[in-house]
Design a binder for these strands. Structure first.
Lengths: 209, 209, 209, 209
DNA sequence: TATGAATGAGAATTCATTCAT
DNA sequence: AATGAATGAATTCTCATTCAT
């Protein structure tokens, strides 16, 4: 793709390279143990370059958090929007949507993010706002919207769609930390689908019209 | 504050003082940012004393995790055992038990622990096992037992009590991270009770006989 | 030997136990790396006991150095005194004596001492005096005396017996550091005898009447 | 001394400055007591600079040992190569060469090294190999070569030149530890020459043709 | 803009030594 | 005389950050 001989990809957007490299490092080691040195090495960039682009380790971290949160959010919202509310398919679609939504948090990056948030929210509460705005609220909103549709269609009884959305997610995840051992063990898609399904079924028993 | 000037309390049990001091430090700063220096200062103890008692920062951390986990577990199990399964009171008792159980995780120490676990489980997976054995499993067991009693009494339909227990907890906590902002903001007891009640009601709709 | 049941040997002379334990520790690790803790553990004694007996690590070290030096000196002087100066046997006896003398420095303890002296003489020049008086001078004296006898007997031409003694030792040891790799590798007695013999032969060519 | 006030010599080669500063510190205090802090102070360099250049205290030490060993070796080999083997001058030249060779080990740096080797060879046997290859073997080789020449010229009887070289050195040094008190006291050149001469004379009596 | 080289601040850990018992 | 428990001081080493080029 490039004709430049010596240096590998001098034209590639350095900013992005740094972010891509930061992901695994932050994810595996957490904020504190992740050294700017390691990120610079992984990005094949010198440390000052990182500082000129992001200002500080903290800011680099926040940008990364925002980026991953947005990506997770996109995946999750897409999953919700794929929820078919037609009378014939909505039950299966609900399981599928919940599964996809849960799996959006099971990317390597996203799992790292989830763990890291908990770790760092004490130090920097602002991070909570970032993730909430970028990832959490939009998903709840989208899911609440679909549940409201199902309510309007007389398929569910949903007096408080936002609460219902939160509960649906909570039920879908109820067994997940157990089987994935807090995200440290990989979990196969069929297993995830099965435990999510159990949660959705409980949800349906509670909310079905 | 006391009149003894030089060495304050030489007879006090040092080990406990260290553990007590370690809690807030680990909780507020996380494992990495928590410095042994800070813990020593907080415990009014010298650093070598910490090392002679616990061997390393890591081991001190694990002992602290274990201690808090056990305490949380005790509180939570006590809450579950207080659940009155008599036909007249069980509904209110379920809300109370779920609330107490959730609040057992809202001590300062426990909240710190919850956040820290997520943060450090990647670095040291063993920590997951410690918490699971000390705190998670016994609570699930106890709660599953009570739900099974309610099932036997014909009050609930509970084919899988363990699953039901996990779901009851998940529903009780469904709104908690939102309102406590991941445990960074204190939350008043009435508020907690209200959101837990919403979760329990959904649970009942799904499981009532 | 003892009837005391619980504690192993409470009556045994603690001072000696400490010295016996200090030897290997100082020898293997050198003065700096040898920790008083390790010595106390090896001697099955508490640290304060060491301090009450010896005052400080430094003083313990000097006592140990003196003890080993004296022992080496005794062995070496014994070897020299065993030197038969009769006209028929003196040649073979000279090789034997030189070998024994050299081997007196090849005990575990003595080798440790030799290495340690070099290490610590810069820090504490007094140690040189200790070893010199305890071990070096008496041996040179004794050997010079025997060589003088051989001179008086007309078997050697020894105008300066002290110089001759130093040269005999130097020649006997000429190859030793090479083959024992500075005392780190064990060396079999026959090998030692052979290289010492080579040195003694050169000595004889230079000094024979 | 210069008028530039703030940062003294930023262009000076840091690596060399560190090595130069490490010499006296290692030499006077030995490996263990030599603190990286002290070396950094002496080199007017910050600690991390040392670590970025050498990786660890241990590696810095080894580099220093290697450097000094090479320098000693160069001086000593030069001394040997200056040995004039012509029938008229070789006797005096032998004394001169032996003296220079011995004095090559009496630089401040070299004396430090000699002491330090003994001290640390127990901890890290590899150091023995470093010194042997860098300093010991080349000198023995060179001296053995010259002695063989003298043998071929019929001036000496040297069946085993390597052994003879070792013995010549041993004899030259026979009195040195005594008068320099293990290298702790400075010794004037004439004194060194005198004691070396005594050794060489004994060597000649043994080996002269 | 990108970097190699440098640094101040602070991390965990160990040690010789000393009380109180 | 002997000890368990404590500590001040020092150790090696790492990190985020910044110059000079």
């Amino acid at each position: 793709m490039s004709t430049a001989p010596a240096r590998p990809r001098p034209t590639t957007d350095r900013r992005q390279r740094i972010l891509d490299a930061a992901g695994p490092v932050f994810g595996e080691h957490g904020y504190e143990r992740a050294s700017v040195d390691a990120i610079a090495r992984a990005a094949q960039v010198s440390k000052p370059t990182i500082y000129s682009h992001f200002g500080s380790k903290e800011q680099l971290f926040q940008v990364w958090v925002g980026a991953v949160a947005r990506q997770v959010s996109d995946d999750a919202v897409r999953a919700v929007h794929g929820l078919d509310v037609s009378p014939k398919k909505w039950r299966a679609a609900l399981v599928t949507a919940a599964t996809d939504l849960v799996e959006a948090w099971h990317t390597d990056c996203a799992a790292s993010l989830a763990r890291t948030i908990n770790a760092e929210v004490g130090r920097d509460p602002q991070i909570y706002a970032v993730v909430r705005e970028a990832a959490h609220d939009p998903v709840i909103e989208a899911l609440a919207g679909r549940l409201a549709m199902l309510g309007n269609a007389g398929l569910l009884r949903v007096p408080d769609p936002v609460l219902a959305a939160k509960q649906l997610i909570a039920l879908s995840r109820a067994e997940l930390d157990d089987i994935s051992e807090f995200g440290t063990k990989p979990t196969s898609a069929p297993v995830v689908r099965r435990v999510v399904k159990a949660g959705v079924e409980t949800f349906l028993r509670a909310y079905e019209a």
